[in-house]
Amino acid sequence: MITAADFYEALAEGTLLATRCADCDGLYIPPRSLCPACYGTELKVEELSGKGTVGAYTAVAITTTRMIEAGYGRDNPNITAVVDLAEGVRISALIHGDDITVGTPVVFDSEHSAEHVVFRKDDS
């Protein structure tokens, strides 16, 4: 069984982990061990490219205790987004850097991802 513990362990090592269903080809991030589409149980771990675009985003001024402890808040809102990944799936991510909007290309920031999934603007 693959769990969030595996996901965050891989994240800390710089990998964005997904699973793919051997039966119906469904791709899942966060990774799952049971395919919700076909109930298949043979899911293979797959590493994603880390490329995507911003699907929706916000700058959170009144934020959670967890984010305040990480240095965010009213004077430094955390930018948080739903990222549309190149593989056709989505993930919630913290965005480093500003000046983004819906459609902005972003890339997985493996260096800063550990407790949170972090993406940054893709300038390439």
Binding site: P30, T58, T63, G103, H116
Partner: peptide, 24 residues
């Protein structure tokens, strides 16, 4: 709590994100 909140979402944050997608 495992995959959304660590990214920095709050409840207003979720709907704010939906708002940007809707407005766009």
């Amino acid at each position: 709590a495992l995959y959304e909140i660590p990214a920095g979402f709050t409840f207003p944050g979720f709907y704010a994100a939906m708002a940007t997608a809707y407005m766009h």
